[in-house]
């Protein structure tokens, strides 16, 4: 018995060096690997489930809209004619915001990453990031009390001088609480997203490519156009998409600033509304069919956001071969 045991022990001891390699690999390293890959898979699934849950909830809650008679829907002409001005209003606000914030954001990011001396770049970066920390209701309040009255005379001027363009048709709003003002407030809100993301990518431009460009006789501006911007293209698109998501969904600032009304092509007259603001303004008192209407409008917003993201993906994919990732 005892000899057997010692034999076994000897055998084990003798085998140990051979199996040590296998043990070490399976025990510590692989367990950690498995746990981690499980965790990251779980995180991915959670996001997917959340998205699915939101989509299912919206579709389910909005479905009664199909059965409501057309003349009982708000506006009295069916759901589509109720929602399309809201969709257009949402897109208008977001497009104005992007048109302003994208060039400004990229220029500020370039200034921080390639032009400003280090002493200036840091504080400017902090200030921009601080903009993101201001609650949207504060932007809204600022929009009403400061920005709108300040812009009203300018809108008057636009109506008088460029009134022949439908977008600037008069009479301009006396309060200045227009689509244009809402778009400008939104642009300030999304500026930090575009700036910080672009800056992060600009500073990652490989030194090698910047030097290649300079060594060919490029000026600093040409170097930026040749080496920095193409390298950052995908990142800039991503930044714009994130910013667009925020602009499309922003509620409080628009709800406060905009003097809402029906569809209006002139950006400097009161009128228009966005989906998010419409929901926020009416949800507390809505029930029954009205509730279904609002949720259906929310579903539209969800769909718009998805479409925009798909378009962005397609744009990125077009340049994949030349992205520098290969």
């Amino acid at each position: 018995m005892s000899t057997n045991l010692s034999d076994q022990e000897q055998k084990q001891a003798g085998e140990k060096p051979a199996s040590a390699l296998a043990d070490a690999a399976s025990a510590g390293g692989r367990a950690g690997d498995k746990i981690f890959s499980g965790l990251s898979l779980g995180a991915g699934i959670v996001i997917f489930l959340t998205l699915a849950a939101v989509a299912i909830f919206l579709t389910w809650q909005a479905s009664p809209v199909i059965e409501i008679p057309a003349d009982e829907v708000s506006g009295g002409n069916g759901f589509l004619s109720y929602v399309y001005p809201l969709i257009l209003g949402t897109l208008m606000a977001a497009i104005i915001a992007l048109l302003i914030a994208t060039p400004v954001g990229i220029l500020v990011a370039l200034y921080i990453s390639h032009y400003a001396p280090a002493k200036v770049a840091k504080p400017v970066g902090y200030v921009i990031d601080l903009l993101a920390a201001i609650p949207s209701v504060v932007y809204g309040a600022w929009g009403i009390t400061v920005l709108s009255p300040a812009l009203a005379p300018f809108y008057n001027w636009l109506a008088n001088n460029l009134g022949f363009i439908p977008l600037f048709q008069g009479p301009a709003s006396a309060t200045g609480r227009t689509m244009m003002t809402a778009g400008i407030v939104l642009s300030i809100m999304i500026l930090p997203i575009i700036t910080s993301m672009s800056r992060e990518i600009f500073v990652q431009t490989p030194k090698l490519h910047e030097e290649a460009s300079l060594a060919l006789g490029a000026t600093r501006l040409e170097m930026i156009r040749q080496a920095v911007l193409p390298f950052a293209r995908t990142g800039i698109v991503s930044a714009i998409m994130l910013a667009l998501g925020r602009a499309l969904g922003e509620t409080m600032a628009v709800a406060l600033v905009l003097s809402t009304g029906g569809l209006q092509w002139s950006l400097i007259r009161s009128g228009n509304n966005t989906i998010a603001a419409e929901i926020a303004l009416n949800y507390p008192e809505a029930f029954g069919d009205r509730l279904a209407e609002l949720i259906a409008a929310g579903l539209m917003l969800f769909v718009i956001t998805l479409i925009v993201n798909f378009i962005a993906r397609a744009i990125i994919a077009r340049y994949k071969e030349f992205s520098g990732a290969n």
Binding site: A212, G217, S323
Partner: peptide
């Protein structure tokens, strides 16, 4: 002109555009 330690063609450009990169400046 200068050639660097590590090859640094512009990854965002085609071979042809890489050759022309310096010519198209200014």
């Amino acid at each position: 002109g200068m050639v660097f330690q590590r090859p640094n063609p512009f990854p965002t450009m085609s071979i042809r555009d890489n050759v022309l990169a310096g010519v198209k400046l200014n």
